[in-house]
């Protein structure tokens, strides 16, 4: 599909939405990294990179596929399909704590996106829609393509934890970003894979899981002393 292969003419809008400085609350989350470090499973640059890779191919791919599908549904104006995505994503996130985080981040993104680019498409969304779904609709509001939405969500799925790692570990910031740099071909590949599902029936969207991320989220939610909200 040609639209999956070429950089959009409106790439500036993609950079805007994918920028961690977008005021949508992402900075308060470590994507499960804090709990994973506490459990001793990540302790240096190498183990961080493995964590990020695992997150990209599981939670990242699922979020990317849902963002792509939401973008596509929104562009088509298919509201029914858009509504079906929500319970399907719920079913792919076993941890109640993680579902709550996804909805909280979705609500914040919806608030930010509505404020910076008012668009009727945002009215199609539930106030507590999941973050990847809101992202897909926001991408559509900027006339971006499903692959753009998937790529940005995949980027956030690894960039958030990588930046959090520098606060949580004695880690050279360059090492964290070097890991992100090595992951870029993988993210491109996953974004293309996610975009292939833009038109897939919601029930058949990818469902890759990372049980330890769900367990980590539950442990984290029950921890008193923590730096990040998740």
């Amino acid at each position: 599909m040609p639209w999956a292969l070429i950089m959009a003419d409106n790439a500036a809008a993609l950079l805007l939405l994918a920028d961690g400085r977008l005021p949508a609350g992402g900075y308060a989350h470590s994507g499960g990294l804090e709990a994973t470090i506490r459990a001793g499973r990540v302790h240096d640059a190498d183990s961080l990179e493995k964590f990020l890779t695992g997150r990209a191919v599981t939670a990242g791919l699922v979020a990317g596929a849902f963002a792509a599908a939401a973008c596509h549904s929104s562009t088509k104006g298919d509201q029914v399909l858009l509504q079906e995505l929500d319970p399907e994503l719920d079913a792919r996130i076993p941890s109640p704590a993680l579902r709550a985080v996804s909805r909280s981040l979705g609500r914040q993104l919806l608030r930010a996106a509505t404020a910076i680019r008012p668009h009727p498409r945002f009215h199609e969304l539930d106030r507590t829609a999941h973050q990847p779904i809101v992202f897909g609709v926001a991408a559509a509001a900027f006339d971006l393509a499903p692959r753009d939405a998937a790529l940005a969500v995949l980027h956030e799925a690894v960039a958030g934890p990588a930046v959090a790692a520098v606060k949580l570990l004695s880690l050279d910031p360059f090492s964290a970003h070097a890991a992100l740099a090595r992951l870029t071909p993988l993210l491109d590949q996953l974004a293309s894979e996610a975009a292939k599902h833009a038109d897939t029936a919601p029930a058949d969207l990818p469902s890759a899981g990372a049980p330890l991320l769900d367990i980590a989220a539950e442990h984290h939610a029950a921890t008193d002393m923590r730096l990040f909200a998740s």
Partner: peptide, 14 residues
């Protein structure tokens, strides 16, 4: 998330 200044200034959404 260890950014109290961000939460009251740059990104107040939460």
């Amino acid at each position: 998330g260890a950014c109290p200044h961000t939460a009251i200034r740059d990104d107040v959404t939460m």
